[in-house]
């Protein structure tokens, strides 16, 4: 008797839960990064490119060094460089941060595919997972509770960022700069520098999200590794009202939507595969429509953010 018959239809929610945790991690990192950047009053639409470059850099360095964690570090560094570059360009007058994001998305993808070509075949070490299902005999439950360390790190980071924005000097500085450039200047802050650093940190987090893709799930590098997660994460931040804790819940929700197709497939539902594949995009768009408002500024939105003006 196969194990899937043991728990029958309950396999679907279980697979979705396990899948949600697995699939949500890149969303979580990219959205936390974007949240940080947007709180400083700038939008980085190029995180999709950063994510893909991070996936490539993480995989390549993990393969060359033999350590998955070196790969994660390299992806974070590469992401930070992309963020610094974005932040540096945006300080020039007349440069549109949304358009620069589109260009950086193309450039990041181009560079990742260019340098990643030799790494499509080799196998790099994986990131380790922690088993939280040791107490159960059920293999499906055990599989669902294989949780990667990066996910836990992401949860910790969400809580940390939340605390940072509320209770620390750095958090307050970022918020002031994000709400009003003039007010920030008046109290002696340098808005461009704060935004530069926030964009760099955001890029580093997006790079880590990419490394998770190539080093854990799905766990290999190829040119189709990201299917718009970087972009969806940007939309997710709007839905999460620029709150890191909400980003965590939203990322889990998106992960669940992404896991819906494979979960149904695993119990034999195969028709409409491509439509389930579209579920995260439809969900994102739906939430974006619900979260937006035609006449008043969005609740919780940083005042200087070009996307909500």
């Amino acid at each position: 008797m196969s194990s899937s018959a043991d728990i029958g239809i309950w396999g679907v929610p279980l697979a979705i839960l396990g899948g949600a945790i697995r699939v949500s991690t890149p969303f979580l990192f990219v959205s936390l990064g974007e949240c940080l950047t947007e709180r400083s009053g700038r939008i980085n639409l190029g995180l999709e490119g950063t994510l893909i470059f991070g996936a490539m850099a993480g995989y390549a360095i993990a393969y060359e060094s033999g350590s998955a964690w070196f790969g994660v570090l390299a992806a974070a560094l590469a992401g930070a460089l992309f963020g610094l570059f974005h932040g540096w360009i945006c300080r020039f007058k007349g440069v549109n941060d949304i358009a620069i994001g589109i260009a950086m998305m193309l450039l990041g993808m181009g560079l990742a595919f260019f340098f990643g070509k030799p790494y499509i075949q080799p196998v790099a070490p994986d990131l380790p997972a922690i088993s939280f299902g040791w107490w159960s005999e059920n293999p499906q439950l055990r599989a669902a509770l294989q949780i990667n360390a990066l996910f836990l790190l992401g949860v910790g980071l969400a809580i940390f960022l939340h605390w940072m924005f509320r209770a620390t000097r750095i958090g307050l500085t970022i918020r002031v700069v994000g709400d009003s450039t003039d007010a920030a200047r008046a109290i002696g802050l340098n808005p461009n520098r704060v935004r530069l650093l926030s964009t760099a940190a955001g890029g580093a987090l997006a790079g880590i999200g990419g490394a998770y893709l190539s080093l854990y799930y799905p766990g290999s590098w190829n040119e189709g590794i990201s299917s718009g997660q970087g972009l969806m994460a940007v939309a997710l931040v709007i839905f999460a009202r620029w709150n890191p804790i909400y980003c965590l819940w939203a990322a889990l929700l998106f992960g669940g939507a992404g896991a819906l197709g494979p979960a149904l497939q695993s119990v034999g539902v195969t028709s409409g595969y491509y439509l389930f594949f579209a579920a995260p995009y439809v969900l994102t768009l739906g939430l974006l429509i619900l979260a937006s408002s035609p006449d008043k500024a969005l609740e919780g939105a940083p005042g200087e953010l070009s996307i909500t003006k």
Partner: peptide, 26 residues
């Protein structure tokens, strides 16, 4: 969507592109 709900057109249009490709494949 931009007029009625103030939805950002850049993000919406890219999401719609992914949806369009999925619909076509389906």
């Amino acid at each position: 969507l931009r007029i009625k709900r103030g939805v950002n057109e850049t993000i919406a249009s890219l999401l719609m592109a992914y949806i369009a490709i999925a619909v076509m494949n389906h």
